[in-house]
């Protein structure tokens, strides 16, 4: 009930996004690293297939504005118009999500350890119980494991902020080993 209310609460998008146009744009600048089908086969590069369009849009704007600083993204984000960002986001959001081809087998103990952290840390409240994400909050299920681990370290260490500081608080105080377990657990979810 509450989730439905919140999903409905957002003001309407100002224009219909054009996923087909987004596919054209992405073909020239995104898929080399993020994967032809939006599932990254490169270490440390996140999969974008099935990510909420709002998440991709917001992150691209944070890249463009110099708020989120990732050297590899600089050239691709600089000066990109809103419309291109929204169309690219719509295309990635339309792709079926799934694990990378090189996902490692599940480590039962590590998975259990990660699961035990995810509950008390309320990960599923914002990212939803299946970790599919919503609006500005990303899909975590089947994301690349080493990317998740690095992203959470950056939030913990104050090297990354989102549109608010929720994630900094959510991972505050977790050890590297705990973040590794959490990353394994989330990367193994489908």
């Amino acid at each position: 009930m509450a989730a439905a209310l919140i999903a409905a609460a957002t003001a309407p998008a100002a224009r219909a996004q054009d996923a087909a146009r987004g596919a054209e744009l992405a073909a020239h600048r995104c898929v080399n690293c993020h994967g032809e089908n939006g599932r990254s086969g490169m270490a440390d590069i996140p999969s974008l297939a099935g990510q909420p369009a709002g998440y991709i849009t917001v992150q691209m704007i944070l890249f463009r504005e110099g708020i989120r600083q990732v050297p590899a993204m600089l050239a691709f984000a600089e000066g990109v118009p809103d419309r291109d960002i929204e169309d690219i986001a719509a295309w990635f959001a339309s792709l079926p999500p799934g694990p990378p081809e090189d996902r490692r087998p599940r480590d039962a103990a590590l998975f259990a350890a990660g699961q035990a952290i995810a509950g008390p840390r309320n990960c599923g409240v914002c990212h939803l119980p299946g970790y599919s994400g919503r609006e500005q909050m990303p899909r975590l299920a089947a994301q690349r494991e080493e990317y998740l681990a690095r992203a959470m370290r950056e939030y913990r260490d104050g090297q990354r902020v989102g549109v608010d500081s929720q994630m900094n608080g959510a991972v505050f105080g977790l050890s590297d080993a705990e973040l590794d377990a959490l990353a394994h657990y989330l990367s193994q979810r489908d």
Binding site: V58, R121, V125
Partner: peptide, 25 residues
């Protein structure tokens, strides 16, 4: 280590309330 982010202290079990997405375009 806080078990939950500071802003979420007191959050009831099962609540899915979260800040609304901003519009940056």
């Amino acid at each position: 280590a806080p078990a939950v982010p500071g802003w979420a202290v007191g959050r009831p079990e099962g609540s899915t309330l979260a800040p609304h997405a901003p519009r940056l375009t």
